[in-house]
Design a protein around this nucleic acid. Sequence first.
DNA 1: TTGAAAGCGCTAACAA
DNA 2: TTGTTAGCGCTTTCAA
Lengths: 360, 360
Amino acid sequence: MATRGRVTIRDVAARADVSVATVSRVLSGRHRVPPATRSRVLRAARTLGYVANVHARALAGGGRKLVAVVLRQVTSPFYAQVAEGVEAEAAAQGWLCLVGATGGDPRRETEVIQLMREEGARVVILVGGIVETPAYRKRVTHYAEVLDAAGSRLVLCGRPSPDPDLPALVVEFDNEAGARAATTHLLSAGHRRIAFLGGLPGNTAMDARVAGYRAALAAHGLPPEAAHVVDCGLGRTAGLHATTALLADGPRFTAVFAGDDMVAAGILRAVADAGLSVPDDLSVVGYNDIPLAKDFHPPLTTVRTPAEELGRAAVSLALRDPRETPGTRHVLATHIVIRDSVGPPRPITCGDTHGGHHPV
Amino acid sequence: MATRGRVTIRDVAARADVSVATVSRVLSGRHRVPPATRSRVLRAARTLGYVANVHARALAGGGRKLVAVVLRQVTSPFYAQVAEGVEAEAAAQGWLCLVGATGGDPRRETEVIQLMREEGARVVILVGGIVETPAYRKRVTHYAEVLDAAGSRLVLCGRPSPDPDLPALVVEFDNEAGARAATTHLLSAGHRRIAFLGGLPGNTAMDARVAGYRAALAAHGLPPEAAHVVDCGLGRTAGLHATTALLADGPRFTAVFAGDDMVAAGILRAVADAGLSVPDDLSVVGYNDIPLAKDFHPPLTTVRTPAEELGRAAVSLALRDPRETPGTRHVLATHIVIRDSVGPPRPITCGDTHGGHHPV
DNA sequence: TTGAAAGCGCTAACAA
DNA sequence: TTGTTAGCGCTTTCAA
């Protein structure tokens, strides 16, 4: 080990008494080199503890196989699963995966994408629903254009493309159908007074779920006023507070459809804190089926959105020949997972005229 | 945008009608450049959508600010939090963070570390307890040496250093103290027949917890036989199966100390499936205080190990002057979070001679 | 089969 | 203040 610091290909070449070109050829494995030379080089590399410098390699070889995922936060179970799917599929195809978190801040998002471009990512995957503002459209249009100009691909996961002609792939779940199924499940159990908790007006994913919820209600012959959407946003705390407020309002609903499982976690907590029971006093349906949903109390009936598959699909689609899939939109199916948080609505306790009051 | 493909510094220089050196100077921000020239360069860069090539930059400038975290899996809440802490602290100091998952496979670990070396990581953080075999000691010694030779630093989080003189930093929780506190909490509540579920013999973290458990028992004047350690390993499923087996054995324990919160999740499920109740029939204590622990049923009493802080500490320690902290070991404190999964032991139902049989 | 040499895009002397 | 130029470590023609 000549100097402290990095061992270079030149050190290996000197040690094996060959040229750097030969070392490179042996190491790349893409050339036929006589076994004797080959093993001499390999031995030299090993004894010196040589590792190739990716930067030099990328610079000389024209980039590297790198896919980048950009998401809100890695500690959210759903996003973590998407990231795992991306990583798995990328690894399977011999690509490296870089993940960046934005915390939901558009400025940070732009920075992270800038970073990914600097790193030479050939695929950039943006994950998660957003509020589709003009600023968003402009931002994404810009990403798509610069990425495309550099020969990279942009994949939008669970968020819309501002323009179908933009060089971007869209992969998403059918949120509306999922919400419709969940609501229908509640309706089939006999519920008619169902609230939706976790609306986030403008957020494309949540809006689609709300639309599905309304559609199911309508399909069941209920008037539009039957829908009650609480725009409390996402997260456990939001669900907790919104439910507490709802309960304080008196018994109005027999079931609640949560915008996602974390909201559902908050709902369950609030119901328990109020001394009530799920599903006896209130039925609850979640969304996403995070790993711990089956450990909620009671185990949560929810809509399964195969997050890992979303990640895998994003990568495999992006890695196909661009000419096969120009600006295409891919929709992944979801299905409802029935566990124990839904029961029949509580029997009518006080006779009133329009269907009875039930707890909540 | 001259050609399709990457815009280089030369394109920007041509467009702004200056030399590449000037562009580099403007972009680095470390040199005084007249405002006029400066803005001309900036404008050119912007209109061309220029992003610097990290590879070229790293190659010419001698590396980059990169810290790498290597962990078992990112979907585990605990690891995810550690990763988030690392990312946050790295970002705060202007460093980039690369995370790699090994799935617990030593071969994969070696590969990932090789990759991080190739990427030029100047700090490599290995997270998570392991079984300290001779192979492990050899592997880590090797990592420490090659990393040190390249001027990088190795940080071991929650795992021991094979040799205090090795150029490696160790940051960990005081697992033994945490387990002692948890066990003492159970003892104070009146429990005497406490099982430990989730042992993983040889795993340094779990062994320390078991040691703390035994120590607390002994400090309370209980004989060594009072300890009952089930080496079922970690994970929800392990906890579920082990508990089911334990329950089938008949009532022998009044409390269970889970190796971590996911094991506790399994335990709670098994208890519920058996038609029993926590804490009425069995008290349960977890370890780690993952975000959803408060949503378990009942909310889980557990030992809080500030995972994010572990990550932050690893980075900030590693980024200090190496001469200040040579081969040092840092221990982070933990504390118990009391929620609702611990109650008094169930009153004796069948009079027997040695303290009574209780459910489980 | 092997080696010499020309870059890849950038930074940092060194000159002007 | 600005430009010229020599590398950084590697891959890849092109020659031998």
